[in-house]
């Protein structure tokens, strides 16, 4: 993965896309019954290293889930959640909330209703709220696990537009089962199958000239 790039992860159902992305910020440890092997490095640091605090990993590597998950609190408090953990001073929280909502392209829609419960927002707005919430703690990497899976086409469009903005500042990893989406937004694409990484390449090259026959079969729709 590279800075200021969008990396897409594609593959058929159950191929390990979600598990893979969850290993990247140690969220995978939240599930039980898993064996963790291998190595993940963030800026030359082994994130599964003995002296690494998973909490710090997750501050640097934010995550957005398949479905929007808003806390039963106000819009403002949702965005401020991560900042409150650090006991940031109020004016700093205020500034960060506004900045994050602006970056998530939600500010114009919610500026007057910050104190309203977050669940009153539409699904697409909620998902952008989740992105704003992830951005508020100023991560370097943003992991997105099928962020548009539960959204309608208009909501999907907004998120995809947003990705182009976000990649100017962050490294973005997006899991999708929608190859068109990968082709539209990603600079690089990785294809997973059966729990293994099959191929990773420049998006254009992967779709036009895949090196692995499995990849070719998948992108041409012979299975999936």
């Amino acid at each position: 993965m590279h800075d200021r790039e969008v990396t897409a992860i594609i593959g058929p159902s159950g191929c390990g896309k979600t598990t893979f992305i969850r290993t990247l910020n140690r969220m995978v440890e939240m599930s039980s019954g898993l064996r963790i092997e291998g190595s993940v490095r963030y800026r030359e640091q082994e994130i599964y290293g003995a002296r690494i605090d998973p909490v710090q990993v997750r501050r640097r590597i934010g995550m957005v889930f398949q479905r929007p998950v808003v806390f039963p609190q106000s819009i403002y408090e949702n965005v401020a959640f991560g900042l409150r953990l650090d006991r940031a001073p109020p004016e700093e929280v205020d500034a960060a909330v506004v900045r994050s909502l602006q970056r998530a392209a939600l500010w114009e829609e919610v500026r007057g209703i910050l104190k309203r419960p977050a669940f009153e927002l539409s699904g697409g707005q909620q998902q952008r709220l989740c992105i704003a919430r992830a951005l508020a703690v100023d991560p370097r990497v943003l992991l997105m696990d099928e962020p548009t899976a539960s959204l309608d086409p208009a909501g999907t469009q907004r998120i995809e537009d947003l990705l182009f903005e976000l990649k100017r500042e962050y490294a973005v990893v997006i899991v999708t089962h929608n190859m068109q989406q990968a082709a539209r937004v990603a600079d690089r694409t990785a294809f997973f199958f059966g729990g293994r990484l099959v191929e990773v390449d420049d998006t254009k090259r992967l779709f036009e000239a895949p090196r692995d026959p499995l990849t070719e079969q998948y992108i041409t729709g012979r299975f999936g």
């Binding site: 969220m27 939240m30 909490v55 997750r58 501050r59 889930f65 039963p72 959640f81 991560g82």
Partner: peptide, 23 residues
């Protein structure tokens, strides 16, 4: 998912318990 969202924001178990679970 609410708990995961909290963890993903870098909350510790205690912070997640206090700010999400108990709320």
């Amino acid at each position: 998912p609410l708990l995961e969202a909290s963890f993903a924001l870098g909350a510790t178990r205690w912070e997640t318990t206090r700010r999400v679970r108990l709320r």
